[in-house]
Amino acid sequence: MIKEIIVVEGKDDTVAVKRAVEADTIETNGSAIGEEVLRRIALANERRGVIIFTDPDHAGERIRKIVARHAPGCKHAFLPQEKALYKGDIGIENASPEAIRQALSELRTETADIAGEVTWEHLMDAGLIVHPDASNRRLLVGKLLGIGYANGKQFYKRCTSFRISKAEFDAAMREMEQQLEG
Results as ranks from 00 to 15, higher is better:
residue 88 G to H: 10
residue 88 G to W: 07
residue 116 G to N: 11
residue 37 V to P: 00
residue 108 R to A: 03
residue 80 P to M: 02
residue 7 V to M: 06
residue 98 E to Y: 03
residue 62 R to M: 11
residue 164 I to L: 10
residue 5 I to N: 00
residue 165 S to W: 01
residue 51 I to C: 03
residue 16 A to G: 09
residue 53 F to Y: 07
residue 28 T to W: 04
residue 119 T to M: 11
residue 8 V to E: 09
residue 182 G to A: 13
residue 38 L to G: 06
residue 46 E to L: 11
residue 104 L to F: 06
residue 50 V to P: 00
residue 85 L to A: 09
residue 121 E to I: 09
residue 109 T to I: 10
residue 58 H to G: 03
residue 178 Q to P: 00
residue 145 L to W: 06
residue 66 I to E: 13
residue 96 S to Q: 10
residue 143 K to V: 01
residue 149 Y to M: 11
residue 101 R to V: 02
residue 121 E to Q: 14
residue 86 Y to N: 13
residue 144 L to S: 12
residue 32 A to P: 00
residue 139 L to F: 05
residue 158 R to V: 05
residue 90 I to D: 06
residue 160 T to L: 09
residue 3 K to I: 08
residue 146 G to R: 00
residue 103 A to W: 04
residue 135 S to V: 10
residue 1 M to R: 14
residue 92 I to D: 01
residue 31 S to L: 04
residue 82 E to Y: 12
residue 3 K to G: 05
residue 4 E to V: 03
residue 174 R to N: 12
residue 155 F to R: 13
residue 127 G to T: 08
residue 132 P to F: 08
residue 112 A to M: 12
residue 126 A to R: 00
residue 180 L to W: 03
residue 135 S to K: 15
residue 180 L to Q: 13
residue 118 V to G: 09
residue 83 K to A: 10
residue 135 S to G: 07
residue 134 A to V: 07
residue 91 G to V: 03
residue 86 Y to A: 14
residue 110 E to H: 06
residue 166 K to P: 00
residue 16 A to Y: 03
residue 138 R to I: 07
residue 139 L to P: 00
residue 55 D to V: 01
residue 66 I to V: 15
residue 25 T to I: 04
residue 11 K to C: 03
residue 164 I to E: 08
residue 55 D to C: 08
residue 118 V to H: 08
residue 104 L to S: 07
residue 106 E to Q: 14
residue 60 G to Q: 04
residue 110 E to K: 14
residue 146 G to P: 01
residue 69 R to P: 00
residue 120 W to F: 11
residue 78 F to E: 09
residue 81 Q to K: 15
residue 128 L to Q: 05
residue 62 R to H: 10
residue 109 T to Q: 15
residue 17 V to H: 05
residue 94 N to P: 00
residue 89 D to A: 12
residue 116 G to D: 10
residue 89 D to G: 01
residue 159 C to M: 12
residue 70 H to Y: 10
residue 154 Q to S: 12
residue 32 A to M: 07
residue 45 N to Q: 11
residue 135 S to H: 08
residue 154 Q to D: 13
residue 170 D to V: 07
residue 77 A to L: 09
residue 160 T to H: 07
residue 133 D to V: 06
residue 127 G to F: 03
residue 137 R to H: 10
residue 56 P to T: 11
residue 123 L to G: 01
residue 21 V to L: 13
residue 156 Y to T: 01
residue 168 E to V: 01
residue 29 N to C: 09
residue 13 D to E: 06
residue 143 K to S: 09
residue 174 R to T: 14
residue 125 D to G: 05
residue 138 R to K: 11
residue 93 E to I: 06
residue 8 V to G: 08
residue 132 P to T: 11
residue 34 G to R: 14
residue 123 L to Q: 13
residue 75 K to H: 13
residue 72 P to V: 08
residue 151 N to L: 09
residue 130 V to C: 12
residue 113 D to P: 00
residue 122 H to R: 12
residue 86 Y to L: 14
residue 163 R to S: 15
residue 169 F to D: 13
residue 153 K to S: 12
residue 156 Y to L: 15
residue 34 G to H: 07
residue 57 D to W: 01
residue 141 V to E: 00
residue 15 V to G: 02
residue 103 A to F: 02
residue 80 P to E: 07
residue 182 G to R: 15
